[in-house]
Structure formats: C-alpha cells, structure tokens
Nucleic acid binder design. Sequence first.
DNA 1: GTCTATAAATCGATAGAC
DNA 2: GTCTATCGATTTATAGAC
Lengths: 223, 223
Amino acid sequence: MTVQTSGNTSAAESVSGAAKKTRKSEKTRRKILDAAAYCLNHQGYALISMQTIAEHINIRAASIYYYFDNKDDLVDEVLRIGMEVVFDKVRDAVESLDADATCRERVEAATLAHLTALLDYGDYTSANIRNFSLVPMELRRNNLAVRRAYANFWRELFEHGRQSGEINADVDLTLTRLLLIGGINWSTDWYNPRKLPVEQISKEVCRIFFDGVAAPPTSQDPV
Amino acid sequence: MTVQTSGNTSAAESVSGAAKKTRKSEKTRRKILDAAAYCLNHQGYALISMQTIAEHINIRAASIYYYFDNKDDLVDEVLRIGMEVVFDKVRDAVESLDADATCRERVEAATLAHLTALLDYGDYTSANIRNFSLVPMELRRNNLAVRRAYANFWRELFEHGRQSGEINADVDLTLTRLLLIGGINWSTDWYNPRKLPVEQISKEVCRIFFDGVAAPPTSQDPV
DNA sequence: GTCTATAAATCGATAGAC
DNA sequence: GTCTATCGATTTATAGAC
C-alpha cells in the first residue's frame, strides 16, 4: 500500500527473475491464470467464458484483455503451465534420489510425484490432461513439445531399467509407459484421498506393474 | 433410384424390433446421432453446435429439433450408446468363453473387446470417455447407472480370480481395475493400428498386469 | 489498470411455410 | 419431415472514459 503500488515495478518473477517483489500486474495475471485453470478443469474448454473467469476473481471480463490477447492465449498458457509443473516435480523427485537407486525406486518416485502434481497441485495439471484432446488443434500443437519431452523422460526411466536387467527383456516398454501414465492420469476421475493416500497408491501401482497381480505358484516343485 | 426411395419405410431397428425395414425417420435420427458423436469426439461438448452437427449430414440445424427436444438430450443419448456398446461387446466376449476359462483368459477377452469397441467402434465410445467428466452434472448423472454396472462387471471378473486363487490375495483389486481400464481408455490418444493390432495389445496388457514387468531372478538360489 | 458500453458473431431454440 | 426466418441470450473482443 506504500511503496510498490505503481512506480518502480520491474521485472517478472517467473523467468530470469531480477527483482524480488511481484508487481501488481503480475499478481493479477497469475490470479487470472488460476481462475482460468479452475474453470478449465471443472467446466472444460469452450464451456468456460471470459466472464465466468473474471467473476471468480471479481474483475470484469474486459480487464482480462489487458493481460492476454485472447481466450486461446490464456488457455494456452494454462495448459503449458499444467504440463511443465508435472514435468518439474517428477524430474526433481527422480533426480533427488541416490545415484544407485533402482529403476523401480525411480518409477515409484516418478509415479508419486506425477500423482501428487495431478491431485494435490490442482487445476493446471488436471486442466491440461482433461482438456488436451478436446482443445483446438493449434493449442494442442503448442503443448506437444513439453509433452514429448516428458514422455521421453519416462521412456528413459524404463529403458534404464531394461539395460540394468531389472525389467524383463521382452516386455513392451512403450506400452508399459503409456499404460502406467494413462492409468494414473485417469485417477482424477476416481481418486479419493480419504480412502488411500498418494504414497500408498503409487507404491501399489508400482507393485502391480512390476510384480503383476498373478498369484505365485502355491507349492514349489518338489525338487 | 427405383424402389426404396420413400414409400414403405417402417418400424425401428434398435429395440424390440418389429418390422424389418428402417423408417426414414429412424435413419435420419441415427445419422444425427452419428454426426453428434463424431463432433463430440473431435471437438468436445459445448464446442459443438447444432449447426455443425447438421452440416455434417447436410440438413439444417432446426431439423434436429424434430428428433430431439434439445441439445442435451442428443448428447445424453450419444453418451448412453457409447457406454452401452462397450458393455455389450465386453459381456458378450466374456460370456462366449468356456465356463472353465481362467480369470486371465476372461480379463484378456474383456480387454480385447473393450479395446476393439473403443478403437474400431468409434465415436460414441470415445465421445463418452473423453467428455464424461466435462459434461454438465445432469448428463453425468444419467450416465452413471450404466457406468456403475460396467464397473461391477469388471470387479466381479477380478474377484472371481481372487477366489480361485489365480490373483494374489493382497493386491488391491479396485486399483488394478481402475488402472487397467484407465490405461486402455487412454489408448485413443496414442493407439496406432499399423504398429500393433488390438489382439497383441490386449495380450501384452494382460501380461504386464498379471506377470509384471520385473525380470525374474536371473539365477535360482543354490538350494 | 480497471471500468462501462457496445459491436459483431454465434448459439440454442421456436414459429410457421411448404 | 425439412425448410427459412428470426428471437433472445450469450460470447469474444474492442473503444474509450476514468
């Protein structure tokens, strides 16, 4: 209310941050993005309107156009953030493991991080996953680069496990990866945090994928 | 160009079929549903308009209202068909197996049928899966009954396997089911029929879920 | 930076001719 | 059954006051 109202507002906080204080401009921009992510997640693309987004943060729809050229640019940024935040969390989780961590430990950490970003971290991530296939082609195309990089990260995770002999040699790793990520992405539809915490979910998910659900032979051969 | 132009079109083909010929009325109704399913799948709810749907089959938007009271009723029926066609195919596939078929064989047949319905059968199924969570609450509620019944079918499939000792006793069957269905539902995003046919996909999916991807111990304990 | 006011387009849905 | 014409509501986006 005193210093940082309008005068020497400078630099953004997101990239190559210079100043330390968030400008009011940046704050409002973030609030718009948050509201857009919320609406996108709960109502879906094209069901959301600029007016609805604006109402959530008590501004007028016209004000949004001071920050974003049009609706698609706004949605585009929400989707981008949604995918990047997952990627960042997952990469951080895996890279913070010991260098000699097993493939299973890495996949488990990645699964937990992905699940956490998806369920706890909220609307950006869910908005991306739920809306990607329904969004105009151009927005999809813009989002593809990050998605490919993320897919590659997982691919390397599994291929590392294969090279170390931890994963069966004749298993389809691409299918494994798509099944795992697809399965946990779906969790936004059924997950109930009061039934099972994310830590247990990710542990159990990896148990299913690594060990399988088939019961081991009941009695060993009498050798 | 001669006989079957307009005259004696009669009776519906769908339920409790009486006559053998499809009325023009029913034919147009089906064409509208097809177009709606296509648009719903490729553009998503609320991005589709009655006009777009009408254009796909060369009629005027107003004509749709002769067959459906409003847009939501039309969407509702597309979603219902989408879920029912999967359920029907999967149930048929499982029930056509031998009575002494193993749990794994049943799950494999169910997976193949689900995948086939999803990928071959087309827009109705995908439209349901992709739009369910984004559609207005009332439409969701209408679709829940079929979805619950379908989920129960899978649940029994797995619980049967547990009771027969085929599935590990301490595996979370609910999570297994959700992971499996979620994973293959996601396949509409990545599946390429020229890379791997559905039969191989479903076989490999079941192998991953039943046996796991972990490599077996390389050398047995020297006992 | 945020607002009011409004232009321009599009949507769902209805009325009524044919 | 399908059409044209249109109403009324809502949308994105812009213009300009403050």
